[in-house]
Each structure stands twice: as C-alpha cells, then as structure tokens.
C-alpha cells in the first residue's frame, strides 16, 4: 500500500444547487471506481472538509459511468446569492476533494497513471 491523492485517481467537477454542493468524481478505470466505493465514506469526506460542510454528505454510485456523485449539504455559506465565499457556486470544491489522501495498492496507482497518460494521448491532436 502507498499514499496517494484522489487527484491521481479521478477527474472531478463540482457545482451548486442552492446551499448544496455536488462533486462528480470520474474514476479513470473500473478498478479505481471499485476502490472509491470501498474507500470513500460520508464521514471521511466530511472530515476532509474540516467544518466547511455543515450538513450531511451523501455518496451516490453511478456504476454505468464508473463515477460517484458526492453531495455536500449546507456547504456553500447559504448558497450563491448570499454567501460570503468568493467561489459562490462551489466550482473549486472538486479540487479541494481531490486533495484527499488515500491508501491504495501500488498497482492501482500505476494503473491510474497509465490510464491518465493514455486518455491524454488519445485526445491530443
């Protein structure tokens, strides 16, 4: 096992609905998706945000696209129209979660790195 950041395993994007922020984590491979389901918990994610998330955290699996939808209730200072956050709509919350450190098998970390290289190579013109 080795320590790695979620950034190396998943793509991520976040947005808002009122005071709710949701973060899509798109696993770079199926094995990584399985790892996410085994590893991520509502408690560990809430802990990672250290008080920024006032409400419940919910994780929705999306097995069809190897992704999970992480929902952070009451996390945007009341919502875009009244929050004091500069990032009113929670666009940067995705990378805040990508900072999370996890323990993974070296083979999975290697798989993630190779998958990332293959994806970027495939789409480079």
């Amino acid at each position: 096992m080795a320590k790695t950041l979620l950034k190396d395993l998943v793509f991520a994007r976040s947005g808002d609905k009122g005071d709710v922020c949701n973060i899509g984590l798109m696993a770079k491979t199926r094995n990584i998706y399985d790892f996410l389901l085994d590893t991520l918990t509502a408690e560990s994610i809430k802990e990672h945000f250290k008080g920024m998330v006032k409400g419940d955290v919910i994780i929705y699996p999306m097995p069809n696209i190897n992704s999970v939808d992480v929902v952070l209730n009451r996390s945007l200072g009341g919502g875009a129209t009244c929050t004091l956050r500069f990032d009113q709509t929670g666009k940067s919350m995705c990378s805040a979660l990508q900072r999370m450190e996890v323990d993974a098998d070296e083979s999975l970390i290697k798989e993630a790195m190779e998958a990332d290289e293959a994806i970027m190579k495939k789409y480079t013109v």
Binding site: F11, R13, G15, N64, I65, D69
Partner: peptide
C-alpha cells in the same frame, strides 16, 4: 469524459433528476 463530467454537474441525486416534465435516472445510460 466531457459527457460524464457534465452528466453529474449540478446533479444532486443522479437516480432522480427532477424536472417539470419528468424524472430522469442517469445511473443506467450508456
């Protein structure tokens, strides 16, 4: 990937994406 990242974007419950015309489930599509 651009489709995936947008499918989840501002989606609070991907099993029940509620709109005035119906409720979509994003968790089975291909």
């Amino acid at each position: 990937w651009t489709i995936k990242e947008h499918l989840i974007y501002e989606t609070v419950d991907p099993n029940n994406y509620k709109m005035p015309d119906g409720i979509a489930d994003f968790t089975a599509l291909t």
